[in-house]
Write a protein that binds this DNA or RNA. Structure first.
Length: 272
DNA sequence: CACGGATCCTGATGGC
DNA sequence: TGCCATCAGGATCCGT
């Protein structure tokens, strides 16, 4: 479900409100993706200092140690200043603090909650160590991006999704960015010319930044920590529009499958 | 090492 | 209405 923009919008929704809070209780539901001995008693009494994002992970820094949260395909976080209703069957993690309660709801349970003593601890490095550069940071540079594409022979769509060149681009925004750049998703990343790499570089930044501004996409079930929906889907150029006319040239949008994932593109606007 | 495929889990949807 | 197959915004692991 959540790609970088949804995770960032989620973070913005509760980061300031939870900062400085003391953890008072933790409730665990069904096991998530990595049931690495998360000990609730270990967390109680600690203070949440800040909430950062790395790729699609949220990092809750505490006065000692940090929690890594991932929303997987179907996860969402809610923050309630007053308290929490009885947990439903998909509420798998509650963090009750002095300033309010954070709740993770995740029907498919591909998400994760992992504790690490430090960002350099093995549990954190295992999850964060191979992540690529942040696309909305000043560290995202065209030279390195193009070099990263050059050394990958796989289709550019799958290289974007892999997250080791640049993080945060999920299935929706990969199709959208490639449309914006006029590049066929099946094209080998290594064969992308410098000018086209530059267009893709800008497209990735623009599509993600726009989605953050718009409050995230809601092609299915995204809602922010206030329970409000985003409205990126109103702006999708290709995603989910197979058979419908391209918004630029009118040619029917085509859907293909790459690595078990749906890809959408305009056969006329996007050249190999 | 890079790549393609299978896999974890549950819910929604569409065909018969 | 029931049943079954397919698909879903992610990421890891395994075999080649």
């Amino acid at each position: 479900m959540p790609e970088l923009p949804e995770v960032e919008v989620t973070r913005l929704g509760f980061a300031d409100r939870i900062a400085g809070a003391r953890i008072e209780a933790v409730r665990l539901g069904k096991p998530l993706r990595w049931p690495l001995g998360l000990d609730p008693l270990l967390l109680v009494g600690r203070t949440v200092a800040s909430v950062r994002r790395r790729g699609k992970y949220l990092l809750l820094d505490m006065d000692r140690g940090l929690l890594l949260l991932h929303l997987g395909m179907s996860g969402s976080l809610g923050f309630n200043s007053l308290g929490l209703p009885e947990p439903g069957s998909h509420d798998h993690f509650d963090l009750v603090t002095s300033r309010g309660s954070l709740r993770l709801n995740d029907p498919r349970r591909f998400g994760a909650v992992v504790y690490a003593d430090a960002e350099t601890a093995p549990e954190a490095v295992k999850l964060l160590g191979r992540l690529g550069v942040e696309p909305l940071s000043e560290g995202f540079l065209l030279d390195a991006f193009h070099a990263g594409l050059k050394r990958r022979k796989a289709p550019v769509k799958q290289v974007l999704l892999a997250g080791d060149v640049v993080v945060g681009v999920g299935n929706i925004y990969a199709s959208e960015a490639l449309f914006m750049a006029g590049i066929r998703p099946t094209l080998s990343a290594a064969r992308i010319s410098r000018p086209r790499a530059a267009r893709l570089f800008e497209a990735v930044r623009e599509v993600l930044a726009l989605a953050v501004r718009k409050g995230g996409s809601t092609l299915r079930d995204f809602s922010n920590t206030e329970g409000q929906s985003g409205h990126f889907q109103l702006e999708a150029m290709v995603y989910g529009r197979q058979g419908q006319p391209c918004r630029v040239c009118g040619t029917p949008i085509r859907q293909i499958r790459q690595g078990q994932r749906a890809t959408f593109f305009c056969p006329s606007c996007q050249k190999a």
